[in-house]
Amino acid sequence: MPTTAFTWLVRGMLWMAGVGLLVLLIVSGLTVPLDNALYDLHARYWHYTPDDRVVIVAIDPKSLDEIGRFPWPRSIHAQLIDRLTADGARGIGMDVTMSTPSNDPNTDQQVATAVHRNGKVVLPVFAEAVTLGGPLQEALPVQTIAQSVAALGQVDVAKDNDERVRGAYLKAGLGSAYWPSLALALLQLGHAPNMALPGLHDPAHNDASPYLWMRDNYVLLRYAGPTGTFGTLSYVDVLNNRVPTDLLKDRWVFVGATAEGLGDILQTPDSPMPGVEYQANVLESLERGLLVTPLDFLRQFALSAVLLALPLLLYGLPGIGRNWALLLTSVVLVLVACFTLLRGAYLWWPPVSCLVVIAAEFVAWQLLMRDRRAVHA
């Protein structure tokens, strides 16, 4: 068999073996930690400056000192909502749980009345097991309050296996993903509720059990920055009218805990972050079109399979030759493809599995060619 025909046969065989290894790596998830580390490294240098349309009203240490130990009487929240209504807030996302009746039913009615007067308040929904090991149930606000809200939004947090929060599920629910996220529900108050959403879809969403918490429209976040990037006002200052009206007028307002020991503290690629600021990042990214959609398996596989051919096609070209420059060139081209998709199209293609297979192809090619040269020596 002519040398050229033999080398092309070897290239084809290596490519097919590489495709098989690629499938194993993608399906097994072995390279996910390295892909996540690469995304985190990039995310730390891909911040943006948020505008002033999103404001956090924080249940912070100052508020706890002045108002008292949390949880507060719900009449306090009713007063805050009325204050935000008077200041002309564009919409209010309350990241505060009100799923059990208050000891004083009058305070629940006060909240319901304040929420109704405002007309643009979103409250959280979450899933919990009432008994240990029991089935999940959706925890909604108490009926009196739930009947008055403009919308409800789920506050599920998309934690990866390493407990870091890189993304968000825009839809989730028990049995099927029908609740929008808190940030999405708030944004939809000013947009069509059926607006097209980005995100990776759950392929099994039509086969869900009514007792399972289902998620859909998974997106990666481009965080504005570390904790404290968004404008934050103290709850007690807003409550007591110590904040200029123009800091709240026509703003999306999230109300939630930032004090240590209250609410969720999420580990992001940058720093620990209160759940309420996480919601602010989701809304800002949604409104400005900055959410990143991961490629599904088929698209990830197809792109990787094409790029696996790079070192096999480049082998022997002038200026590249048959040495480590070939491997370096291939790696650089893969990374350029990855970050071009991310920055230019807001699509995330995890490249590490492709890089591993390319390295394996390179080593196998070197061994095969060395053995062939030894036979003909």
Rank of each mutant, 00 (worst) to 15 (best):
P193N: 04
V142N: 06
K249Q: 14
N36K: 14
T268L: 03
A37P: 01
V155I: 15
P180N: 11
A5E: 14
P318V: 09
L368H: 05
L266K: 05
T100V: 14
M195H: 12
H47D: 13
L132G: 10
L84Q: 04
L220W: 06
G68A: 11
L367M: 15
Q267E: 10
S102F: 08
P203V: 02
L123R: 08
P198E: 11
D60S: 04
E287I: 07
R299F: 08
Y218H: 14
G119F: 12
W252A: 10
M94H: 00
G12W: 04
V55W: 03
N161H: 13
R370M: 14
T144K: 07
Y278R: 07
P61E: 12
V332L: 15
S148E: 06
Q366D: 11
Y235S: 05
S176I: 07
Q147F: 09
M1V: 12
L187S: 13
Q79F: 00
L239K: 00
K120Y: 07
R215I: 08
A325M: 12
R83W: 07
G134H: 05
P311W: 06
G263F: 03
P311Q: 07
Q137R: 14
W349H: 12
F230R: 02
R373A: 15
P351I: 01
L84K: 03
L182K: 05
Y211G: 05
P198A: 12
F339Y: 15
H205W: 10
A168C: 06
T232Q: 14
L307V: 01
L248E: 03
P135R: 06
P105N: 08
T31I: 05
G316F: 01
L247E: 10
L283C: 05
R74Q: 02
Y218G: 04
L140G: 02
Y48P: 03
A43T: 08
W8T: 14
K62H: 11
V331E: 11
V352R: 04
V54T: 14
D216W: 11
N161G: 15
M16G: 13
G275N: 04
R288Y: 10
L295F: 12
L313S: 12
D216G: 00
P2N: 15
A185F: 04
Q110E: 15
F70W: 15
V27C: 09
G321Q: 07
T245I: 12
H42M: 09
L212I: 11
V238R: 08
R299N: 15
P351L: 08
A302D: 10
M214Y: 06
L21C: 13
K249W: 08
H77Q: 13
S63H: 00
L310W: 10
L355G: 00
A185R: 05
